[in-house]
Amino acid sequence: MSDAFFSVDAVRGANLRPVSFTLRPGEILMVQGESGVGKSQLLRALADLDAHEGKVVLNGVEQQQMPPSQWRRRVVYLPAESAWWDDYVDQHFTENLPETWWAALRLKPELFRAEVARLSSGERQRLAVARALVLKPKVLLLDEPTANLDAVTAKAVGELLSEQIKAQGSAGVWVTHDASEAARFADKQLYLDAEGGHIT
């Protein structure tokens, strides 16, 4: 507990059995489990988007002690489906992305000024990854960030995420259905079932 950077203690909710784990800076926890066991619910609870019980601590500060918008700026949730509210991509960013990211995401830099309505779902998904990464979060909560991408792109996006988590000294909680992806990026693995979470 002492050197824990992000600690989760018996977090549970309506359809979520208790889950506990701790992460150090740069560590990634890969979360697997059957559909409906509460993987997204776990991420939503960690971002404080749903009512839940248990204790979540970041850098010694308890979740419920921090104003919610400040907490969410540090513990950023990337949902499986991204949402966009303005007409153009760049209206959703405060700064342009580092050049290397465009290549890593296999996207054309021109997309930054594109209309959101014209993007493909894969482009939206990758831009949402970038939108979360530029915030330099302390903890990234990733809900199947590479699902619906082709294998080559999925690998590239996964590598960018993993590399940025390490480089920024943040922590990642990463839900996936892909066992090989889990094996590739995991520092720790959590298997979620009807009983709760098991660290493996």
């Binding site: 971002a47 988007l49 104003p67 919610p68 918008s69 400040q70 969410r72 700026r73 950023v76 949730y77 990337l78 949902p79 489906e81 991204s82 949402a83 966009w84 509210w85 939108r131 979360a132 915030l135």
Partner: peptide, 14 residues
């Protein structure tokens, strides 16, 4: 709701 939550997620206040 997706947009409202997307904004909360990115740290927008109410």
């Amino acid at each position: 709701r997706a947009v409202l939550e997307a904004r909360l997620i990115l740290g927008h206040d109410l």
